[in-house]
């Protein structure tokens, strides 16, 4: 029976692996092949093998600036998500209130709405003569947040925060509360117990949550388009612009690959932010 086990394992893993290969690896391979093709106005895409699309990206300042903006927005949102999500997740994990389920529901409620619809809500708030502007008008000032970086960050934050809270909450739930009690029993103050006991244990989970938010931010599309407007440039809208407006599929494919590679690289590097002894 023991000898048959690897075969059985292969049988169990086979279907899922095949689906992943078919649904993820194959399209990626096709996309990569397209990124090596050449664009033509009439033919749209001419089969060849050239690195011109990648060279174009790395030799033009414009594209570097778009990538920089994308990373800055994604990183800012990730940091804000940690700052805002951490206390909320901690409170949710430790509360014994009978309203805990309701509180959890409130956190995930925004996920019930599509991100585009949610963004339209922000547009109503941010628009000139919108809700915020009208309230500010009562105090003799104006709030014109529409088509600004701040609007994009707030919008993306609202999309990512529930993911962050849910992940962190489960991380904190997994840390035994008796460890804190033990630390306090040995003379640590509550804050010292948190930072010296809970925080190191939670750090890998916090990092994963931040990475999740970062990845979502790097690939944000609807929010930058609707709240940032045509002048706000991020990578995902740029991929779509090249694909849809310019019909330049090879360059669009190269942009998609660069975005993926950058996200993977930064995600891998972020692992070094966690001290080795605390890594999962």
């Amino acid at each position: 029976m023991r000898q048959k086990l690897p075969l059985a394992a292969a049988g169990l893993l086979g279907p899922a692996t095949s689906v992943v290969v078919l649904m993820l690896a194959a399209p990626l391979a096709l996309l990569f092949r397209d990124s090596l093709n050449r664009f033509d106005v009439t033919e749209l895409m001419i089969e060849t093998v050239t690195a011109a699309n990648y060279t174009r990206f790395f030799t033009e300042t414009f594209y570097w600036e778009v990538l920089r903006t994308t990373i800055l927005v994604a990183a800012t949102v990730a940091v804000l998500c940690v700052a805002l999500g951490l206390p909320l997740a901690w409170r949710l994990a430790r509360t014994t209130s009978r309203w805990k389920s309701l509180m959890m529901l409130l956190v995930i409620l925004p996920l019930f709405i599509g991100s585009t619809v949610r963004t339209v809500g922000w547009m109503i708030l941010f628009a000139r003569n919108g809700m915020m502007d009208s309230v500010a008008g009562l105090f003799g000032t104006r709030v014109d947040l529409m088509y600004t970086t701040t609007a994009v960050i707030i919008g993306t934050l609202s999309v990512n925060l529930p993911f962050m809270v849910l992940t962190l909450q489960s991380v904190f739930e997994g840390i035994d509360d008796r460890l804190t009690e033990a630390a306090q029993g040995l003379g640590a103050t509550p804050s010292r117990a948190f930072w010296r006991v809970v925080w190191p244990l939670a750090l890998p989970g916090v990092m994963i949550s931040a990475i999740l938010s970062f990845i979502l931010g790097m690939n944000a599309y609807a929010t930058p388009v609707l709240l940032g407007g045509p002048r706000f440039q991020m990578m995902a809208p740029l991929v779509f612009w090249e694909f849809n407006t310019n019909s330049n599929w090879p360059f669009s494919a190269a942009l998609a690959f660069i975005l993926m590679a950058t996200t993977l690289l930064l995600t891998s590097l972020s692992n070094f932010l966690v001290p080795r002894r605390y890594r999962a």
């Binding site: 106005v41 009439t42 414009f62 600036e65 045509p230 440039q233 407006t245 310019n246």
Partner: peptide
Amino acid sequence: TSKALPDVTDWWKKTIQHV
């Protein structure tokens, strides 16, 4: 126009849209 479109589109993206 059909020939000029890619160049104009690129210019628009990098000059007019780009603050």
